[in-house]
């Protein structure tokens, strides 16, 4: 037995044909009209069958299109995931590179006092050897001993002063580096911390001759993530050196800090460099946006700044700029960072 969707119509047609025979006998003058009616019903049935096929075809096409859509959506989502992973990896390597630059800065800065201390110590050792020989030979005069004493006092002062300077630098760097690497939350004096960070940037700042003026209330204490602050400041300074003062352009930077209220800190980082056009200004925080592609620009420096300000410090950042009018970044963030789950990828180095 086979299933027939149009069994009822066929049954009706069979009855009509039977009726046609009876009409032929009983009322032959009605026959032509009756046959036309039956033909119209037959046509209508065939059209109905055709429409069912059209409809089925459309439904099948719709289903195919839906499957295709689903497949493409899956593909797009997978591609997006891969892109996010790649972006994350690049951001991590960018952070590592900035930590590497910090270490290089530390080495460079400490080199000077340690170098002075070493040459002073060497000079003192030579003078001591000489005076010892004179003493052994019994030829040491009072005047010679007095000169040696003066040398010993001078050099030991220099050695002590420079070693203290080195120790001080190491302490500052250690704190900055530990903060950078560990993202530990603690209380800091903002003014002092800004200074520590700027010292670590000296090797970048000194050759170009661009100074950073700081105006920060000396007693402003933060309960926050100092490593993040340090990274933000480094990136802003490096960004200014790369873009605002590109090609040896002269100018200065300034960090201006004030408190809008007891809980909100405003930090402005400004430069009087070459500024930027509006179409660049609106895009500076986008990942991979750079005007220096192929010339060392990764397009991530300010993106990382934005992520750190918004994601870790729970604050906001805005930028104002115009060509040849300098650039000003304004950060607003709570003096005491609210407790929240840290986005790990922003911190882990």
């Amino acid at each position: 037995m086979s299933f027939n969707l149009f069994a009822a119509e066929e049954e009706a047609l069979a009855k009509a044909r039977a009726l046609e025979k009876r009409l032929d006998a009983l009322a032959p003058d009605c026959l032509a009209e009756f046959r036309a009616l039956v033909a119209a019903f037959e046509l209508s049935t065939r059209e109905q069958q055709r429409l069912v096929r059209v409809s089925d075809r459309l439904q099948a096409q719709l289903s195919d299109a839906n499957h295709e859509l689903e497949r493409r959506r899956d593909e797009a989502e997978a591609a997006l995931d891969r892109l996010r992973e790649a972006q994350e990896a690049i951001i991590q390597s960018e952070k590592l590179a900035s930590l590497g630059a910090l270490v290089a800065g530390v080495a460079h800065e400490i080199n000077t006092p340690v170098g002075i201390a070493v040459s002073c110590a060497s000079h003192l050792a030579d003078a001591t050897q000489a005076i010892r020989r004179r003493a052994t030979d019994g030829e040491l005069s009072k005047a010679e001993f007095a000169r040696y004493l003066a040398t010993a006092i001078d050099t030991s002062d220099l050695i002590l002063g420079n070693c203290e300077r080195a120790a001080q630098l190491i302490a500052g760097f250690k704190q900055v580096a530990v903060d950078r690497a560990s993202a530990v939350r603690r209380s800091i004096n903002l003014a002092a911390y800004i200074q520590d960070t700027l010292v670590s940037l000296q090797p970048k700042l000194r050759p170009s001759g661009h100074a950073v003026a700081v105006d920060c209330p000396p007693d402003l204490e933060l309960d926050s993530y100092p490593g993040v602050l340090s990274q933000i400041l480094s990136n802003l300074v490096m960004n200014a050196l790369t873009h605002a003062f590109a090609d040896g352009r002269a100018g200065d930077m300034a960090i201006l800090v004030d408190c809008l209220d007891a809980d909100t800190v405003r930090l402005c980082f400004t430069d009087n460099g070459r500024g930027m056009a509006e179409e660049h200004r609106t895009r500076v925080f986008e990942p991979f946006f750079t005007t220096r592609r192929g010339r060392g620009g990764s397009g991530l420096g300010l993106h990382i700044v934005h992520n750190l300000v918004v994601g870790v410090l729970m604050g906001s950042i805005s930028v104002e700029s115009a060509p040849d009018r300098g650039t000003s970044f304004t950060l607003l963030f709570p003096r005491r960072t609210p407790d929240h789950e840290l986005p790990v990828q922003d911190l882990a180095i």
């Binding site: 046509l43 059209e47 055709r50 429409l51 059209v54 409809s55 459309l58 096409q61």
Partner: peptide
């Protein structure tokens, strides 16, 4: 290249 059921019926009417 693509038509819905109403258009199919319209086509059949045109063909008739």
């Amino acid at each position: 290249l693509y038509f819905n059921s109403s258009s199919a019926k319209a086509l059949m009417n045109i063909f008739q």
